Computed example of a mutant assay.
Amino acid sequence: MDLDRSGLATSAVAAASGYSSQQVRDLESSGVISQALRSPAGYRHFTQRHVVELAAYRDLATAVGPVEARRVMREVRAGTVSEAVALVGALHVRLERERAEALAARRALRVIEAEGRGEGTTPEDAMTIRELAKALAVRASTLRFWESCGLVAPERVPTPSGSARLYPAPAVREARITAALRAAGYRVPEVREAIEALRRYREVERPLEALDARVESIGRRGLALLRAGAVLAEVIGDQPRARRRE
Rank of each mutant, 00 (worst) to 15 (best):
D2F: 03
V215Y: 01
Q35V: 11
P170C: 05
A175E: 08
Q239R: 14
E101K: 07
S34V: 01
A78C: 08
V231M: 14
P158I: 05
A69E: 10
P189Q: 05
E119G: 11
K134Y: 00
D238I: 03
A114G: 09
L132Y: 10
D212L: 07
E96F: 02
V138F: 09
P168Y: 07
A86M: 14
L8R: 12
Q35C: 07
L54G: 05
L181I: 04
I195P: 03
E131Y: 06
V111C: 03
L166K: 15
R245V: 05
R156M: 11
G65A: 10
V204L: 14
E190Y: 01
L60D: 04
D125S: 06
A175I: 07
R206K: 09
G185A: 01
A36D: 03
V76P: 03
D2E: 10
G18F: 10
A69G: 01
L226N: 13
A153L: 13
F145S: 15
R117W: 06
G18M: 10
I112T: 05
I129W: 14
A14V: 12
R139W: 09
A108V: 06
C149G: 02
A228S: 01
E209N: 10
L151F: 02
V85Q: 14
A133P: 02
A36R: 02
A175G: 08
V93M: 02
R70H: 04
R25N: 14
T142C: 04
G219S: 08
E155G: 01
L143D: 11
E53Q: 15
M73T: 04
R94Y: 01
A135Y: 03
V152S: 04
V81W: 14
G237D: 15
G162S: 12
Q35P: 04
H45G: 08
P170W: 00
Y43A: 13
A41K: 13
S39G: 07
D59C: 07
G42E: 12
D212N: 12
E83A: 14
G79H: 04
V51Y: 02
G150Q: 10
V85R: 14
S21F: 01
L136M: 04
E119N: 10
G162M: 12
P240C: 02
E113M: 05
T47R: 15
L181Y: 00
A9R: 15
G120I: 07
G79N: 13
G65H: 07
S34Q: 04
G116E: 13
R200F: 00
R243Y: 00
D59F: 00
Q48G: 14
L136D: 05
D2W: 03
R5P: 13
D59Y: 00
A233R: 09
R77M: 12
A197R: 11
E234S: 12
I112R: 11
M127N: 04
R117D: 09
P160Q: 07
G118E: 11
S217Q: 13
L226R: 14
A224R: 06
E131L: 10
L132C: 06
V191A: 07
S29W: 14
E234P: 01
R99M: 03
D238C: 06
R176K: 06
S11K: 14
A114K: 06
M1G: 11
G79L: 03
D26A: 14
S20R: 13
A100P: 00
E216D: 08
V24L: 10
P189C: 07
